[in-house]
Design a protein around this nucleic acid. Structure first.
Length: 524
RNA sequence: GGCCCCAUCGUCUAGCGGUUUAGGACAUCACUCUUUCAAGGUGAAGGCACCGGUUCGACUCCGGUUGGGGCCA
């Protein structure tokens, strides 16, 4: 057993988005595989015809790739157990169902939905747990013929044992016991011939040689029937590891992208989304909540988060190495990740903590690299044209340096659009204008500062700062009054990084022009 | 309703019977620095859900209660 190659898988449905919870499950599987020299398999659960569209799969593949979770077998890669799309494996499932029927582990059932419902209702009325009576179970070809003569159509059900205990030795949860006498005869094939999840999943896991099933906790209750299928078919059992699910911000409910409205009541979550939307709108991206929200990996990719930050955060959402290490490179994660140290209780998604990781990783990058990350956003917002000239690049680098960790995600560069727009396009924050340039005196002071700056030979940050300080002292005004008046005139806002840097990066000509514009504007 | 899982600061977690006045991180608050906004520095506040056992000793083991969640209906 120990010598077998570790083989793990994730089996997402093509739903159009890579959800945070799935991303974490994928990460844990990937870490486990890489840490054991194993194989990470991607299998697509696209048995639901209605949603089976290629464009719904792309975001999931892109998201996994972006996170660095490369798969060894699966879509685009192929592999020895192809096809990896369940929609293409129907014959395999049919054979499995036939075998299950042949060995008595499953049966054709001709009951109608109404008849089953009636039985269930009766059980409830009598206060006992419902279990199907198998009254319309067909055991022979004659049975089938008879039922079909009545116009009935069969489903295939598992014929679960009447009694007994099934034990799952879960790698994370330990020993979990189930009373087989309480299990239902679940349907594994519908009337229309389509197959149900438990069947396809168990069969594929066996056929693909999966050794460890690492999946979310909600599947724990389903494990007995999958084990029953596996055993009935004569396959060896994989090991199971059921992960706690990822919960909502500030609660223990399972995270769901359908409950976005509720999450928005949480300030942290709302702030994160607002940050993303601000960026996305500038890029002309679709910000409809279905596709663009912090529950979905694509959101982070689009707004300029670093994959390392997400990976580090996700790794720690339900796992820890020790009592203090919080930063891990992917290599360290691979080395240290262990299922035994996965926590058993659900962990809620905390935007703040994620942001803290993002800032850490962002600031760890050299300025040149951060500049490289930020430039595409300027280009896509139409503020910088391609190819990017060395001058522009250097200018952006200066902004990135001056901004420091105000640029938390790459898209935040768009907050500094005032360095790129034409003077007449500059947007002024009216309250700020009113506050710092609303009065006659303030404008007169700005006019004098303008003359001072017009005479400046060197337009560098430190020099300018000294000039402004001297000016404030001489005129007996507060330094802040000077710097803020200038800031509003040049950037339109009353916040931002150091005024010396602002002026210097903006450049003398433009600074003077913008001051003139503001002074002009205020006369009316 | 039945079955299963879970339970340490607001959040993520460390803790695997005594080394613990329960440690770290994020968030929060205060002070400090600062010619704006951030950041930085210093510090504070904040938790073992409850009740029984077992034990010389329980956050740690067992049982129950409560609460939360999941699956099946």
């Amino acid at each position: 057993m120990e010598h077998d190659t570790v083989r793990v898988r994730i089996a997402p449905s093509p739903t159009g988005a890579l959800h945070l919870g799935l991303a974490r499950t994928a990460l844990y599987n990937w870490l486990f595989a890489r840490g054991h020299n194993g194989v990470f398999i991607l299998r697509i659960d696209d048995t639901d015809e209605n949603r089976n569209q290629p464009e719904m799969l792309a975001p999931i593949l892109d998201g996994l790739r972006w996170l660095g979770l490369d798969w060894d077998e699966g879509p685009e890669k192929g592999g020895p157990h192809a096809p990896y799309f369940q929609s293409e494996r129907r014959e395999i499932y049919q054979q499995a169902v036939d075998r299950l029927i042949a060995c008595g582990a499953a049966y054709r059932d001709y009951a109608t939905t109404e008849e089953i419902a009636a039985e269930r209702e009766q059980a409830r009325a009598e206060g006992r747990t419902f279990r199907y009576s198998r009254r319309w179970m067909a055991e022979t070809a004659a049975d089938c013929a008879r039922f079909e003569a009545e116009g009935r159509r069969p489903v295939v059900r598992l014929k679960m044992p009447d009694a007994g205990t099934l034990v799952v030795d879960d790698l994370i949860r330990g020993r979990v016991e189930f009373d087989l006498g309480l299990e239902q005869d679940h349907v594994i094939q519908r009337q229309d011939g389509s197959f149900l999840y438990h069947l396809t999943s168990a069969v594929d896991d066996a056929l693909m040689g999966i050794t460890h099933i690492i999946r979310a906790e909600e599947h724990l209750s389903n494990t007995p029937r999958q084990i029953f299928i596996l055993q009935s078919l004569g396959y060896p059992l994989p090991k199971f590891a059921h992960l706690p699910y990822v919960a909502e911000p500030g609660s223990k409910n399972k995270l769901s992208k359908r409950k976005l409205k509720e999450y928005l009541k949480k300030p942290d979550f709302a702030e994160l989304l607002a940050r993303g939307e601000k960026i996305a709108r500038r890029l002309g991206l679709d910000t409809s909540p279905e596709l663009f929200n912090p529950v979905v990996i694509d959101f982070y990719q689009q707004t300029g988060f670093l994959a390392e930050a997400l990976v580090n955060y996700l790794a720690l959402l339900g796992w820890s190495y020790d009592d203090r290490t919080e930063f891990f490179t992917p290599v360290e994660l691979v080395e240290r990740f262990a299922l035994e140290r996965v926590v058993r209780s659900p962990a809620s998604f905390d935007p703040n903590r994620l942001m803290a990781f993002q800032v850490h990783y962002m600031m760890a990058l050299p300025v040149a690299e951060r500049t490289g990350l930020v430039l595409p956003y300027l280009v896509r917002a139409g503020l910088v044209s391609e190819p990017v000239s060395p001058e522009v690049r250097q200018r952006v680098e200066r902004i990135v340096t001056a901004a420091g960790d105000r640029i938390k995600v790459a898209g935040d560069i768009l907050d500094y659009d005032y360095f790129f727009v034409r003077d007449e396009e500059l947007v002024y924050d009216e309250p700020a204008v009113k506050k710092w340039l609303g009065g006659e005196q303030q404008c007169r002071m700005l006019a004098r500062v303008r003359e001072l700056l017009a005479g400046a030979v060197q337009f560098e940050s430190e020099v300018l700062m000294r000039v402004l300080e001297d000016f404030a002292r001489r005129e007996n005004v507060k330094g802040m009054a000077v710097s803020q008046a200038l800031r509003v005139a040049v950037t339109g806002k009353d916040y931002g990084f150091g005024i010396g840097d602002v002026l210097s990066i903006c450049g003398k000509e433009r600074v003077l022009a913008r001051i003139d514009r503001v002074l002009e504007r205020d006369r009316f």
